[in-house]
């Protein structure tokens, strides 16, 4: 028997070592969806002969800045000293993924808003906004002012789409890298976490988009894409686990958290079964039988995407190098 006593605080509770909670898990989830939406939107505008999208598809890009704002609100809530948040933009720390993230987020906003604006205008054609009433003149003034900008954006549409694609990918990868560079948490410490989070984010985004009244063609496209993404995600998860299993003792004990430890049941049911296997089968069956992908599988994918982040955030903090942390 090995007995540990740590005077730091209570061994397993360690309140002062509380690091990240649900806010971060939620932020990572929303960030992943935002990344996916941006990638998909970017791809749509990069396509050679863009067919007219459904109204829902045209409006969906707005979710990028919206969900990101929501996510950043949670991120901000998690800060212990929130009114020092401006410090993020006083420096650029090359070695800090969080610093990268902060600057990426800064770039994501204009890019995603611009593309959403263009997408909306494109879909609706005519003037937007109130045509009469007290605000109409202001609106008119604004649209006129923005017309120039819009023209410029349209002229550089491919660049804008590319920037969305790249920023979206960066955002998706960064959420994984943020955890992946923590050498102190063996469960996270894998270069695969970046791609994994990107792919999972895209899969979640596809599922998220499927919740809206898209056209049949769009649904089939997203369903097919999601199917591929799920397969890739499963492959990445498998590689991530193989990587942990073949690394040192700390990584192995970290892996044991999800293969026989306290996070096992939740990981395999929510992430693997509910989030991956079942939707995979469901979507495959749907597409195979020529049906339009429905929403059930999409909801499951979203549940799985959130569960992946939630479990990774908490299990990762429970993993550690020193034996007392791995015990948790």
């Amino acid at each position: 028997m090995t007995e540990l006593e740590s005077g730091r605080n209570h061994l397993l509770i360690d309140p002062s070592l509380h690091v990240w909670g649900w806010q971060i898990a939620l932020y990572l989830f929303l960030g992943g969806i935002v990344a996916g939406i941006m990638v998909f939107t970017g791809l749509r505008f990069l396509g050679r002969t863009p067919r007219p999208p459904s109204l829902a598809m045209a409006l969906i890009p707005w979710f990028a800045p919206l969900l990101l704002s929501l996510g950043m609100l949670f991120l901000w809530l998690d800060l212990e000293h929130p009114f020092n948040a401006w410090r993020f933009y006083m420096v650029f720390q090359v070695s800090s993924p969080m610093s990268w993230g902060a600057w990426i987020l800064l770039a994501v906003y204009p890019s995603s808003v611009a593309l959403a604006w263009v997408s909306t205008r494109e879909a609706l054609g005519g003037p937007l906004g109130p045509r009469d009433g007290p605000w109409s003149s202001l609106w008119l003034w604004l649209t006129r002012r923005l017309a120039g900008v819009e023209g410029w954006l349209r002229a550089h549409l491919r660049g804008l789409a590319l920037s969305n694609l790249l920023l979206g990918s960066a955002l998706g990868i960064y959420t994984g890298i943020l955890l992946g560079t923590m050498a102190a948490r063996p469960l996270w410490n894998s270069p695969l976490l970046g791609p994994l989070f990107l792919v999972s984010g895209m899969s979640s985004a596809a599922a998220f988009m499927l919740l809206y009244p898209l056209s049949e063609r769009e649904r089939v496209f997203l369903g097919r894409t999601d199917l591929t993404l799920i397969l890739v995600e499963m492959g990445l998860l498998f590689l991530w686990m193989v990587g942990l299993a073949s690394a040192g003792a700390a990584s192995q004990s970290a892996l044991a958290l999800v293969t026989g430890g306290p996070f096992t049941a939740s990981f395999w049911s929510f992430v693997v079964a509910v989030g991956l296997v079942v939707p995979l089968v469901a979507e495959w069956v749907e597409l195979r039988h020529g049906q339009v992908p429905g929403r059930s599988a999409a909801v499951l994918v979203l549940i799985g995407g959130f569960a992946l982040r939630w479990i990774l955030v908490f299990a990762g903090q429970a993993s550690g190098w020193s034996s007392e942390m791995a015990l948790m």
Partner: peptide, 16 residues
């Protein structure tokens, strides 16, 4: 069989 957590997973197929 396995750990308690693995045994808990038996609920999954039954549930399905």
């Amino acid at each position: 069989f396995g750990s308690e957590d693995w045994r808990l997973l038996s609920g999954l197929p039954v549930g399905f």
